[in-house]
Design a protein around this nucleic acid. Structure first.
Length: 112
DNA sequence: ATTCTGACGTGGG
DNA sequence: CCCCACGCCAGAA
């Protein structure tokens, strides 16, 4: 019996270093295409799971909409930059180059 | 049970 | 391209 949140965390853990994905992409992968907001809401509680790279999840435009949930003023951006991702004004540059789609890289059946 | 809240996405203008 | 309005639904209170 795995909760929706737990499944979100499991997917997020598999985002490769230096890559990012979106809330909607995770939701779609989990078979809940209309629950993108819930993915973000789940991230809110992810701080207890230290192995969940919440900074690698952004909105569909590559905007760092969740930065205010990190400590400090710019931690989310700094983490991404430290992984070699270009970030300017809370927006990932060349977003397509870093985007990682769970649906194209993971086996859905393991997450039901 | 019922109400409220969003770290979103989409479609229309 | 931008902006707005609305649908979305798991969990907490």
């Amino acid at each position: 019996m795995t909760s929706f949140y737990d499944r979100v965390y499991e997917v997020a853990k598999l985002i490769p270093y230096g890559r990012v994905t979106s809330y909607g992409a995770i939701a779609k992968f989990l078979g809940a295409a209309r629950s993108a907001r819930m993915v973000g809401y789940a991230m809110n509680g992810s701080h207890i799971h230290l192995d969940v790279p919440a900074h690698r999840v952004v909105n569909r435009k590559g905007l760092l909409t969740g930065k205010h949930h990190f400590s400090g003023t710019n931690l989310m951006a700094d983490l991404l930059i430290s992984e070699g991702i270009l970030v300017k004004e809370n927006q990932i540059q060349d977003f397509e180059n870093y985007f990682w789609d769970p649906s194209e890289n993971l086996n859905q059946e393991k997450f039901i």
